[in-house]
Simulated scan of single mutants.
Amino acid sequence: MSTPVYRAGHVAVIGRPNVGKSTLTNALVGAKVSIVSNRPQTTRHRLLGIASFDAGQLVLVDTPGLHRDQGKATASAMHRSMNRAARGALEGVDAALLVVVAGQWDEADEFAYQALHGARLPVVLVVNQVDRQKDKTALLPYLAKVTEGREFAAVHPVSALKRKGLEALVKDVLALCPEQPALYGEDEITDRSQRFLAGEMLREQLMRQLGKELPYATTVEIERFEADGALYRIGAVIWVERDGQKAIVIGKGGERLRDIGAKARQHMERLFGCKVFLETWVRVRQGWSDDEAALRAFGYRD
């Protein structure tokens, strides 16, 4: 009896903002490694999500959403950093997933496709959120339209949120990866540290609760991360750019900050599998999002 072929490779997850790239990455990994919210560009960093299966392993490179105008001189340092991270994800990967929303294809989707096409990578089109399509008969004409004149190794309608259609997707993506042993251990789910993930869990709650008021004015710095037996003691600073923003984050009598911290702590405890004692402070650093040195200090690297 022949030995089953095992494949492993790096796969970039690319698309315009807010199409569900991080939700797809989490669904394939089977654990929450990328934060999600309904705000575009919630993902600011490039990170690896490690999805292990019987037939192989996919090292998914989750990325910030690509924006056509991010490379312009008028874009903020934050936007330039995110765009470099997204484009850098194409280096050294074996394949790419282009994630789009079912029924939608605009200039931003075309921009993402052209970036992949120029990188000469095999591209799998992942049509996400098919569960939200009210008119299911419109899906086939839509697929015919977006694939006409464009090169895709495969096309997969899925629902990342409901984890539908992922088994067939995994099979086709693994077929694009080389035959080789697993690149990471079966129990590994990301290349990022617990310290980094703690900061992301807190930033996720900021995006979820303050996305309409302060969509991009906040970031998180973990100042302390200590293991005390079965307890993690974490000290986090929430950075904003103005005093008025600080007041919004704290809320009346500190209520909003307490709620943000409590929800973040719950997510940390589920991810880390232990109790967490979380302390948070809010501080002001004017113009941090357009300051290259500040971004580097806060962990924003290409």
Rank of each mutant, 00 (worst) to 15 (best):
K32W: 01
V33R: 08
S34M: 10
I35Y: 02
I35R: 03
N38K: 06
P40F: 01
Q41W: 00
T42N: 11
T42C: 13
H45Y: 06
L47E: 11
L47P: 06
L48W: 10
G49N: 10
G49D: 07
A51L: 08
A51C: 09
D54G: 03
D54Q: 13
A55I: 00
G56T: 05
Q57W: 09
L58C: 12
L58A: 10
V59R: 15
V59N: 12
D62Y: 03
T63M: 12
T63H: 09
P64Q: 13
L66M: 13
R68Q: 15
R68K: 15
D69T: 14
D69A: 15
Q70K: 13
K72N: 14
T74W: 06
S76G: 13
H79E: 14
R80P: 02
S81H: 06
S81K: 02
S81C: 09
A85R: 03
A85L: 02
A86G: 05
A89R: 04
A89I: 04
E91A: 14
V93I: 04
V93G: 05
V93N: 08
D94G: 10
A95Q: 10
L97N: 08
L97C: 04
L98T: 03
L98C: 00
L98H: 03
V99M: 06
V99Q: 02
V99Y: 01
V101Y: 02
A102E: 01
A102D: 10
G103W: 05
Q104R: 15
W105G: 12
E107F: 00
E107D: 14
D109I: 07
E110W: 01
Y113F: 15
A115G: 01
L116K: 12
H117L: 01
H117M: 10
G118D: 08
A119E: 03
R120V: 02
R120M: 09
L121V: 04
L121T: 01
L125C: 08
V127L: 06
V127I: 12
N128W: 03
N128C: 02
V130G: 08
V130D: 07
R132P: 00
Q133S: 13
K134Y: 00
K134V: 00
K136D: 04
T137G: 09
A138M: 11
L140M: 15
P141L: 11
P141W: 05
Y142A: 06
A144Q: 15
A144G: 15
K145N: 13
K145I: 00
T147A: 01
G149Y: 10
R150G: 09
E151H: 15
F152C: 12
A153M: 06
A153Y: 07
A154L: 05
A154G: 12
V155S: 11
V155K: 11
P157S: 11
P157G: 08
P157N: 11
V158D: 03
S159T: 03
S159Y: 02
S159A: 07
L161F: 04
L161H: 07
K162I: 01
K162R: 12
K162P: 01
R163P: 01
K164W: 02
G165R: 03
G165D: 04
L166E: 05
E167V: 04
E167R: 14
E167P: 01
L169I: 05
V170Y: 07
V170N: 05
K171S: 09
V173E: 08
L174Y: 09
A175I: 00
L176C: 06
L176R: 07
C177W: 04
P178V: 05
Q180N: 09
Q180R: 15
